[in-house]
Write a protein that binds this DNA or RNA. Structure first.
Lengths: 188, 188
DNA sequence: CCGAGATTGTACCGATCGGTACAGCAAGTC
DNA sequence: GACTTGCTGTACCGATCGGTACAATCTCGG
């Protein structure tokens, strides 16, 4: 028995969890209905656009969460080491130390990739830009900063995949730790 | 028009490509039929177990390819630097410089994860063991060797995800290059 | 207490899902 | 040329897919 949802704000996180753990195609309306406690009638009342709209709004919600809690802090920080540490902390808590998947990554790999390609690219690009900016500010050259920030995104996504595949969240923690020292290392 | 397949050996790669680009749930029998040029009758003649058997045999095929071309060379090499370079080269060519996805990773993220959990874990664990072994032989301590090999697997998976998400295979190439230098670096 | 709008459950739609049954066909063997 | 054996196309199955229609209900200002 799932407690029914009252408003849209409560709805999005539940939808997100369904898409996360089943993928876009795997998230059937039956599953969504069960996870939210809402019948199809209500679901289509809130999202006349159906599954596609649900996923799009979930993605937008995730995007704005990252914008507020990760990207913006990176951009505005004047203490790169602190900013990177804060990012890693936020990432670790958001992904529950590797137990939770990255929906953006999941969608990028799925068959629905083309539908959401723009949002996916935007998400990773803005993250990459924000991280490169703060690294730049720490004294790295533009090219090194961009290389390191891309490496960080690669590591985060890969760590999530491997933690899930091996069903072992320790690889995520280990990867985050090494990634942090790599980000903050002196320019080579 | 797809040229019909003659025997099972030709069949598996085509099946693999379908699962790769659509995921397990996204790979419908209609898609499989189209990609192989075989009707359902033939498909179920070769694979009485249906989709699950197809995917299992595809996974087994991939596993044995990696065993022969990646894992075994790592294990038997007495020149770690050469072995690592060979692995990176083989990985780059197998994944077509980031254009091709890793089916094992795709399955690990999908809803069908539980069905193939054992094969997935086995694949990554054997890769990790083989790579750690050769790193060990290069003079690294056991713990450092394992850390670095896990980092390499993380990087490969992450690079594939990000290359796909950004639709830019350069991030894959860049990540492979950095990973190689990290693998072959002197013990910290 | 009433009416209006928001919300809901349910019946239903055509399409497609994975899978089965089976008749037909090709090719070799005796 | 009969007979087996391997392969193939096709019709069909029940279940489920995403989505629609709509009447019943709830909520709340007036």
């Amino acid at each position: 028995m799932v407690k029914p949802v009252v408003d849209r704000a409560d709805l999005l996180p539940r939808l997100a969890e369904v898409f996360r753990s089943h993928g876009y195609e795997g998230a059937t309306l039956a599953l969504i209905s069960q996870a939210t406690g809402l019948g199809k009638g209500s679901l289509y009342h809130f999202f006349p656009g159906g599954k596609a709209q649900m996923a799009a709004e979930v993605l937008a919600g995730i995007d704005s969460w990252f914008e507020a809690n990760i990207f913006a802090p990176l951009r505005t920080s004047d203490d790169p080491a602190r900013a990177v540490a804060a990012m890693v902390g936020a990432v670790d808590s958001y992904f529950q130390s590797g137990h939770r998947m990255c929906l953006v990554g999941v969608i990028a790999l799925g068959a629905s990739r083309d539908i959401f390609a723009e949002q996916v690219q935007d998400y990773f690009r803005r993250w990459n830009d924000a991280l490169a900016l703060v690294l730049r500010r720490s004294g790295l050259s533009a090219s090194v900063a961009r290389r390191r920030s891309a490496d960080a995104l690669v590591t985060i996504q890969g760590a999530l995949v491997l933690a899930r595949a091996l069903d072992d969240s320790r690889v995520f923690g280990q990867a985050m730790a090494e990634m942090t020292t790599r980000l903050l290392a002196k320019p080579d």
